[in-house]
Nucleic acid binder design. Structure first.
Lengths: 110, 110
DNA sequence: GGTTGTCTCCTAGATAATCTACAAGAGGCC
DNA sequence: GGCCTCTTGTAGATTATCTAGGAGACAACC
């Protein structure tokens, strides 16, 4: 039985997270909910993808974190974009545009 | 030294190959050249990605192959889309549209 | 007729991102 | 006290792609 297709296009998760944080600082769980919501449920981020991605991004210095309290009074780690993250976001956005545009060109979806 | 970014969005190679073969049967080497050309050099398919992908697609029954002679009188394996491949192409095209659209929605590139 | 270049196919191993599946703390509620 | 939900996390498997080659065969030139 063929399994369901991936929930994401590989390589775009970082971009999605950075963009979401550019609009507003939030905690990891909230980020994934926000993305799901904004995409009308099309993009679903698994926890097993989310947290490693956040760790990666923080290691790269693109986001930084701080523990705080969520709306529901739970402990949550709040992330926000750094200056380097903003730069990275611009680059990845540009790369996404270039690549997705090229694909659409091949598909004839001009 | 940061290495160059990926040449492709992972998961889209099959789609690109299927689409290219939908327009015209061709050999592997030619497929990669065609995609490079149509995308204005943006999409570059490594041989180490191409041939495994072709093998994969043939195993799935989406393309079939036949040995022939290329324009330059070299032995070349010509691939063409099967009926199942056409169906797969339609599905993957739809998935691509859905996912890339969702990403653009998150990016605000309405 | 040897050498070199180019076309074309192919493979092995490494890399890295994502998925599946699980574990666990902590607050709110009954 | 027990249960539900929020929130973070980890381990291992999967899989696509990349890097880095190898090899045959025709063409072209000396």
């Amino acid at each position: 039985m063929p399994k369901a297709k991936a929930d994401l296009l590989q390589g775009t998760l970082d971009l999605l997270i950075l963009k979401t944080l550019a609009l507003e600082s939030m905690h990891g769980w909230g980020i994934s909910q926000r993305i799901n919501q904004v995409s009308d449920g099309v993009l679903n981020i698994n926890q097993g993808s989310l947290y490693p991605a956040l760790y990666r991004l923080e290691q790269q210095g693109w986001i930084e974190s701080e523990w705080g309290s969520s709306d529901n009074n739970r402990q949550a780690k709040y992330y926000k974009l750094t200056r380097a993250g903003r730069k990275q976001l611009a680059e990845e956005t540009e790369a996404w545009g270039r690549l997705s545009g090229a694909i659409n060109q091949v598909l004839g979806t001009t």
